[in-house]
C-alpha cells in the first residue's frame, strides 16, 4: 500500500531523514517511534507530499507522490503534529470545507460529516468556533478532518498528544476500529502507546531506521528483559550470601540510594528461567523480608541506548538495521 524507498531529506548540512526504506501492507497499522527530533514529522510530511524529499521515492497505492501528487494525495488523510484548523470557522463549517477540498460528492457530504463527527465525538461542539475549543477537542477535530473522505491511508502524527487518559484509550479504540478499512501510519514517542495498537513498529533515530519488527516480537523482547528489581529488609552482606548460592542468577547490582534498614538491588538472571519463586523462598528462609519485587521493563530510552550503541558498532559493516532479537 505504501512503499518508501531510500528516502533522504537534507536541510543544508543537516540530514533530517537518512536513507529510510519501509513498506506498509494494506490494513496494517504501522507505528513510527522515535525521540523528539528523530525525523518522524519530516518523514510524514514527505509521505503526504507537504514537503519534497532530497532523494528517494514514495509510492502510495501505486501512485508516486512526486510524479502524481493529486492521485496520491486523494488516498491520504493527514493529521499533522499541529492540527491544521481555522480558528474562525465552526467545526461543521471547517469539516464542510475539508470535504470540499477533498472533492467529496455533494450528495454524500452532509451524511459523511455527521458520521465522522459521531466517530470522533465532536457532534456536541459542531456549532462552536474552533478557537473556543479545548486542546482535546481541537485534536479530535483534526482527526475528523483526516478521516473525511475515508481515504485508504491515514497518517497520524502523534494523535494522542494533549488528550487526557480517558480520551487516549478511546482514541486507541477508534484507531483499531479504523484499521478495518484503512491502512494507518501513526507516530509517537511513547512505546506503550504504539505497542498497544500497532502491527508493525519502526524505530528511527536521527533520521535512520534502527529497528523494524512486528509489534509482538518487539514487546516480547521488551517484557522479557531478564531483570528483577528488589527491595529487601536486610543488609547487603546477607543478601549477597543468598544470591551467590543461586545458580539461575547471573549477577546483581545494588542501587546507590539506600534507606535505613532496606536495600534495593537489581538482579539479572539467565534466559527463560523464572527465578521469582526461588528468590522468594530463599529470602524468606534467611528471614529477609522482600518488600517489593517487580520485573523491570525495558523503556524506550533503554532500547535506544542499546540499539544506537549496537548500530554504531555495526556501522562498519554498513548494517544499520537490526532485528529486535539481536538487542
Amino acid at each position: 500500500m505504501i512503499e518508501v524507498k531510500n528516502l533522504v531529506k537534507q536541510y543544508g548540512n543537516h540530514l533530517a531523514v537518512d536513507n529510510l526504506s519501509f513498506t506498509v501492507e494494506k490494513g496494517q497499522i504501522l507505528g513510527f517511534l522515535g525521540p523528539n527530533g528523530a525525523g518522524k514529522s519530516t518523514t510524514m510530511n514527505i509521505l503526504t507530499g507537504y514537503i519534497s524529499a532530497t532523494e528517494g521515492t514514495v509510492v502510495v497505492d501505486g501512485h508516486d507522490i512526486f510524479d502524481e501528487p493529486e492521485e496520491a494525495k486523494k488516498c491520504i488523510g493527514y493529521l499533522p503534529e499541529l492540527p491544521p484548523l481555522y480558528p474562525d470557522l465552526t467545526v461543521r463549517e471547517y469539516l464542510n470545507f475539508v470535504a470540499d477540498l477533498k472533492q467529496v460528492k455533494r450528495s454524500e457530504k452532509a451524511q459523511m460529516i455527521d458520521k465522522i463527527m459521531n466517530m470522533t465525538k465532536v457532534t456536541d461542539v459542531a456549532g462552536r468556533l474552533i478557537k473556543h475549543l479545548s486542546k482535546g477537542y481541537k485534536q479530535r477535530v483534526g482527526l475528523a478532518q483526516a478521516i473525511i473522505g475515508f481515504p485508504e491511508v491515514l497518517i497520524l502524527d502523534e494523535p494522542t498528544v494533549g488528550l487526557d487518559p480517558m480520551q487516549i484509550t478511546w482514541i486507541r479504540d477508534l484507531i483499531k476500529d479504523l484499521k478495518k478499512n484503512h491502512t494507518i501510519i501513526l507516530s509517537s514517542h511513547i512505546l506503550s502507546e504504539v505497542s498497544a495498537v500497532c502491527d508493525q513498529i519502526i524505530i528511527i533515530n536521527k533520521g535512520r531506521l534502527i529497528v523494524s519488527d512486528s509489534a509482538d516480537n518487539l514487546s516480547k523482547h521488551i517484557t522479557g528483559s531478564n531483570q528483577l528489581h528488589l527491595q529487601v529488609k536486610g543488609d547487603k552482606e546477607a543478601i549477597q550470601n543468598i544470591l551467590q548460592t543461586m545458580e539461575a542468577v547471573s549477577s546483581f547490582e545494588f542501587d546507590k540510594e539506600t534507606i535505613d534498614g532496606f536495600t534495593s538491588l537489581t538482579v539479572y538472571y539467565r534466559d527463560n528461567q523464572d527465578v521469582r519463586e526461588e528468590i522468594f523462598y530463599a529470602f524468606s528462609d534467611a528471614r529477609c523480608a522482600i518488600i517489593e519485587m517487580h520485573s523491570t521493563h525495558m523503556s524506550l530510552e533503554d532500547i535506544f541506548l542499546e540499539v544506537t550503541q549496537d548500530s554504531k558498532t555495526k556501522e562498519d559493516n554498513k548494517e544499520v538495521t537490526v532485528n529486535a532479537g539481536d538487542l
Binding site: T48, E70, K73, Y78, P80, P84, Y86, L101, Q103, Q145
Partner: peptide
C-alpha cells in the same frame, strides 16, 4: 503561521 497550509498542500488540489 497557523500551519493550515499543511491541510491545503496535502489535499488533492494543485
Amino acid at each position: 503561521k497557523q500551519k493550515t497550509d499543511q491541510l491545503l498542500l496535502t489535499s488533492p488540489v494543485p
